[in-house]
Amino acid sequence: MQQFKVSGMSCGHCVRAVTQAIQALDQAARVEVDLAAGLVHVEGSLDAAQIQAVIHEEGYEVVPA
């Protein structure tokens, strides 16, 4: 499972946007978003660069852990 620190997420819409964007590339991906901690956990076939790019495309920033 990969973990990303993401800034800018604040609500249920953010959770859905990030989850749907990742699952658009990998339908079988398991995505868990922890809004309070600002973390996105992804289990699937995508590499870190792909996940970071799609999160960025949704308007959120992946910050170094």
Rank of each mutant, 00 (worst) to 15 (best):
L39H: 12
D34E: 08
V42C: 01
A53K: 12
Q27N: 10
L35V: 08
G38N: 09
E32R: 11
A49M: 03
V54P: 02
A36N: 08
A37W: 00
D47Y: 00
L39Y: 10
S7Y: 13
I55R: 01
L35P: 05
Q2Y: 14
I55K: 04
I55H: 04
C14M: 08
S10K: 12
A48Q: 08
V31S: 02
A29M: 03
A36S: 04
I51H: 07
V63T: 13
C11N: 07
C14I: 14
C14S: 12
A36L: 06
V62Y: 10
L25E: 01
H56N: 13
G59R: 06
H13G: 15
D47E: 08
A53S: 13
Q27H: 10
E57K: 10
A29W: 04
D47R: 00
P64G: 13
M1V: 15
V42A: 00
S10G: 12
Q50P: 00
G12A: 09
Q2N: 14
C14H: 09
Q50W: 03
C14Q: 06
I55Y: 10
M1Y: 07
E43Q: 14
A65V: 15
H56S: 14
S7R: 14
M9F: 00
V63H: 11
E61F: 09
V63Q: 14
C11D: 12
V31F: 00
E58S: 11
V54R: 00
L25I: 01
H56F: 12
D34P: 01
A36H: 05
G59I: 14
Y60T: 14
A24C: 00
G8Y: 10
E32S: 11
E32C: 07
A48W: 02
A36E: 12
D47C: 00
A53D: 14
V6R: 04
V33A: 03
H56P: 02
H41N: 13
E61I: 12
E43C: 07
I55G: 05
I51R: 01
F4R: 06
V33P: 02
V6T: 06
L39G: 03
V63F: 09
P64V: 12
A21H: 05
S45V: 12
S45L: 08
G44L: 05
Q52D: 10
S45F: 04
D47H: 04
I22Q: 03
A48R: 07
Q27K: 11
S45R: 13
